[in-house]
Design a protein around this nucleic acid. Structure first.
Lengths: 110, 110
DNA sequence: ACGAGATACCTCGCCTGTCAAGGTACTTCG
DNA sequence: CGAAGTACCTTGACAGGCGAGGTATCTCGT
């Protein structure tokens, strides 16, 4: 991974919620999507992903259900809840603020 | 603090190095500067700051010396080394890449 | 003279998120 | 039949941030 884990620490929840805003999905697919969108420069490790799902479900931001898998491995689908949408907007705002502040702090010239 | 710790995890080193690029400084002052630049929206905790100094000094990115404090509390000044400047540029590049990827990942529309 | 608050440093131990490593189970294709 | 892909999950280690606590000096108001 070119982007180290610590650099996006705290942002995984936001990333997952953003993906689920576009429709229900499941772990494996979300991971692939993230990898594709970032052109392979960033990918969540499975352990991180499933820990995040658990955390998000416990906090009521997402809900899950087993897809009826006629064929293939069973999939656990996730849906974003109203609370999850709120969380997404909050995290998005935080990200924009973080970006702004970081850009100021990292600028070496005044 | 309005910006949670995890959001800047992994970025503290870059922030400190960026500050030192503008000239030698010491812990207390760096912290004040960060607070000022971010309009008080973000401040490193002292424990975090001094841990980072130790880490950066051990990895050869910064060097320290005691300022001769005729009056007032003694100050430990830090200087950025050549290795530290390299690290800054690398971290800066990483930050720009992280920003780009995060913006893509957090966008809910396609 | 004294206490409060600012300046200035530091350490210990907890918490939390990431991840390496390991496991399970099913399907497809050569 | 075996390898590779799909798909899930857990455990334990690790590292960084930080709450809480400590030390020492100086300044300023009362």
């Amino acid at each position: 991974m070119s982007i180290a884990g610590d650099l996006i620490r705290g942002h995984t929840d936001a990333i997952i919620l953003a993906r689920l805003l576009r429709g229900d999905s499941y772990g494996y697919e979300i991971n692939k999507t993230i990898s594709t969108i970032s052109s392979g420069r960033f990918e969540l490790k499975e352990a991180t992903l499933y820990t995040a799902f658990k955390r998000l479900e416990e906090s009521g931001c997402i809900a899950s259900y087993w897809g009826d898998s006629g064929a293939g491995a069973r999939r656990r689908y996730y849906t974003i809840t109203a609370a999850g949408k709120d969380a997404y907007h909050r995290l998005m705002t935080e990200w924009l603020e973080t970006k702004e502040i970081m850009d100021k702090l990292l600028r070496m010239e005044e």
